[in-house]
């Protein structure tokens, strides 16, 4: 008996890797979610969600009521904002520049922000700020994330910030704020999203 899939919940995993860093806030865009069923069918939910650890409710994506009944086993989504939406005019809702996920000095959305402190950071107050995003040739930081999921009412995706932080040399790279430096870290950021 299949249960109806109702929501996707993102669970942030951040222990600090033994006191090496503290996560203060993470924000990221989830766009154009696609659910893939075991029978080969798929269902696409067009649009964007902005997830924000400061707003725990935002970490739960409620799915449309009319979602076809199927045995969904994996899902994919854009981590960020697809290029057409990135270069259009101002958007309302999740893409409203109001949310601070937009580089005002250059055209483009920030796809993912990870902010906090780390003992190895040479920045004032030991700040770390990774703002990844952007799409400007030759740099394209738009990625699709693929995740397996177990069937049930609620699909869970772990956001393993510990794993991301383990790939970074904080003393060397305490922050990233532009499209080129984002290109060096974006694939590590994609790896952060995994099944529980």
């Amino acid at each position: 008996m299949l249960e109806v899939l109702l929501s996707i919940v993102f669970v942030v995993h951040s222990t600090g890797n033994g006191g090496q860093y503290t996560l203060e806030r993470a924000q990221w865009y989830v766009g154009n979610v696609e659910l893939h069923a075991i029978d080969g069918s798929s269902y696409r939910i067009a649009g964007y969600y902005l997830l924000d650890t400061d707003d725990p409710q935002s970490l739960r994506l409620e799915l449309p009521e009319l979602l076809p009944h199927a045995d969904y086993r994996s899902l994919s989504f854009t981590l960020g904002v697809d290029s057409l939406d990135n270069h259009g005019g101002p958007r309302e809702g999740a893409l409203d520049p109001m949310h601070g996920m937009y580089w005002t000095w250059s055209t483009g959305y920030i796809f993912l922000k990870i902010e906090g402190t780390a003992s190895a950071s040479p920045q004032p107050k030991k700040r770390i700020e990774y703002h990844l995003g952007g799409f400007r040739a030759p740099y394209n930081n738009i990625r699709r994330v693929h995740c397996a999921m177990t069937s049930g009412q609620e699909a869970r995706i772990v956001v393993d910030v510990d794993a991301f932080m383990r790939t970074i040399n904080v003393a060397q790279t305490p922050g990233v704020m532009d499209v080129r430096s984002s290109a060096d870290l974006i694939d590590q950021a994609v790896e952060m999203f995994r099944a529980p």
């Binding site: 270069h87 005019g89 000095w105 250059s106 055209t107």
Partner: peptide, 25 residues
């Protein structure tokens, strides 16, 4: 040429420290 869309341009002066220095909220 940093800004590609005219309707996005105003974000820059509105929030730039040395221009209008305001926050969007």
């Amino acid at each position: 040429g940093a800004i590609e869309h005219l309707d996005m341009q105003a974000l820059s002066p509105l929030t730039s420290h040395a221009e209008m220095g305001e926050t969007l909220p």
